[in-house]
Every structure is written in structure tokens, then in C-alpha cells.
Amino acid sequence: MKKSLLFTCLASSILSLHSCDFSKRIDTTAAVKEMKNRQVKRILPQDITNKADTWGQEIQAIIENPTNKLSLDSISKQFQISIQSGKAISLKQRNKDQKIQEVLAALDYSQSIKQEVPPSIQKNTAGDSLYYIFINKKQDVILLGFSKSQIVMNIDKPLIK
């Protein structure tokens, strides 16, 4: 009886050790690196604003480049944004958003007193869109409209699935 118990115990020990495959060890440093790469990143409102600013500056450079042959419509389609151009007062009449109307009224006043206006980022009233606003050399106001969801998708494309 003791021999059969000893034999069963020995046989189960051998089987359990045989099922453990020590040749397939995981490289823990590579596993940790992979986990960090797949980790969900948090996007802060400041990150969205910064991306809209840098994206707006890039598009402004394209628009103001003298060798640029693209129309505003083609740039709008290329970057999947809305672009509005014209005098501040006419843009104010076309926009229904109260906050953007106030900004355009302020721009109209600044232009009337010949004040230099740097580019700026403005949110709409609902807060779901950002506008990069600048004045070109012809003294037309150009509004580049970015939806927040579009900005988030362009912040870090590998993390979004």
C-alpha cells in the first residue's frame, strides 16, 4: 500500500513538473514596456488646446505661403476642418455662436483702430469646438474651426483604436 501511494505521488509530481515548460520564459522588461505602450493615456484640456494651436499655426503657414496653390476649400478638405474667411463684421453675421460673435466684434474694433492682433484660440459657447483665429495680410479674418473629437483623434493616433 505504501509503495502504491509513493508511486502515485511520484508519478503525479513528475507529471506536474513535466507540464511546466521552463523554456518559454517571458521577458519581463519587454512585457512591462508593452503594457506601458498599451496603457490608456489621459488627454487634458490643455493638450487639446495646444494641439489646436500648433495645428492652426501649421495651417496658417500653408495659407500664407506665397507658393501655395491650394484654395481654402481644398485645405479644409485636406485637414477635415472648417475654414471661414472675410471681414470680421461679415463673419459675425454668418456665425450663430454668441461667444464667437463677441470675439469677431472685438476683432472688428481692433482692426478699426489699426491695432495689431496676434493669432488666438477661442472656444465656442458649447465648448465642443475650438477656433484658431488670425488676420491675413489682406486684413481678412480667417477662422479655422476644429472639433474637439477631431483634435483628440490627431493627438496620438496609435493609442486610439
Rank of each mutant, 00 (worst) to 15 (best):
M1P: 10
T8V: 05
C9L: 10
S13Y: 15
S13H: 12
C20Y: 15
S23N: 06
S23V: 06
K24C: 10
R25N: 11
I26L: 13
A31W: 14
A31H: 14
M35G: 12
R42F: 15
R42N: 10
L44R: 15
L44D: 15
P45Y: 05
I48R: 00
N50A: 12
A52G: 07
A52E: 01
A52L: 00
T54N: 09
T54C: 08
T54P: 09
W55M: 08
W55V: 00
G56N: 00
E58M: 12
E58F: 14
I62W: 04
I62L: 12
P66M: 03
P66T: 02
N68T: 05
S71A: 06
S71R: 05
D73N: 08
S82G: 15
S85G: 04
G86R: 03
A88D: 01
I89Q: 03
K92N: 14
K96M: 09
D97H: 02
Q101N: 03
E102N: 12
L104I: 02
L107P: 04
D108Q: 14
D108K: 13
K114C: 05
E116W: 08
Q122G: 03
L130M: 03
Y131T: 12
F134S: 04
V141H: 00
V141L: 09
L143E: 07
G145F: 01
F146C: 05
M153C: 08
